[in-house]
């Protein structure tokens, strides 16, 4: 059977109005995959959520809400492995601090935890001009 090979590279302004666009790309990828036998509706929601949360983190915590900055997102699928990279151009944030579940009544800090529940691997590391949050899921 032909395996899926997809690569998407997109740059959008550092603004929350673009969350919908990025989230929908994730959903559409889930609905388009040829070799996926799991729950497609769940995968569509999960990819929408992971992209939305990762981009929100980049906008609010790494790019410090500066609307002139950009968020760069790469999504690639090869060999049944989905890799999402979200690049920011800021000082970064402590990803480990948010990896644990929050108290139910906390108003903030659930985004990275939600990404952890969906993806198999998460790393956050510096690049030349900022940071990249890399998330991997085996399909």
């Amino acid at each position: 059977m032909t395996s899926d090979r997809i690569a998407v590279d997109i740059k959008v302004p550092n603004q929350t109005r673009y969350l919908r666009l990025i989230g929908h790309i994730g959903e559409n990828i889930a609905r388009t995959l040829r070799n996926f036998s799991g729950d497609r509706d769940k995968l569509a929601y999960d990819l929408n959520l992971v992209l939305t949360e990762a981009m929100t983190n980049a906008i609010q915590h790494a790019n410090e809400g500066d609307p002139a900055k950009e968020v760069h997102i790469e999504i690639s699928i090869a060999e049944q492995r989905l890799v999402i990279r979200v690049f920011d151009s800021g000082e970064g944030f402590d990803v480990k601090q948010y990896a644990q579940p929050r108290h139910p009544l906390d108003e903030h800090g659930r985004g990275i935890y939600l990404i952890h529940t969906i993806m198999d691997e998460i790393t956050y590391r510096p690049t030349g001009s900022g940071h990249v949050l890399e998330m991997v899921k085996r399909l």
């Binding site: 969350l19 659930r110 939600l114």
Partner: peptide, 16 residues
């Protein structure tokens, strides 16, 4: 049909 952690946070704020 879609809610993220910020949406949950807003509802928790309202609840509190």
């Amino acid at each position: 049909r879609f809610v993220d952690s910020s949406g949950l946070g807003a509802l928790v704020s309202g609840f509190k």
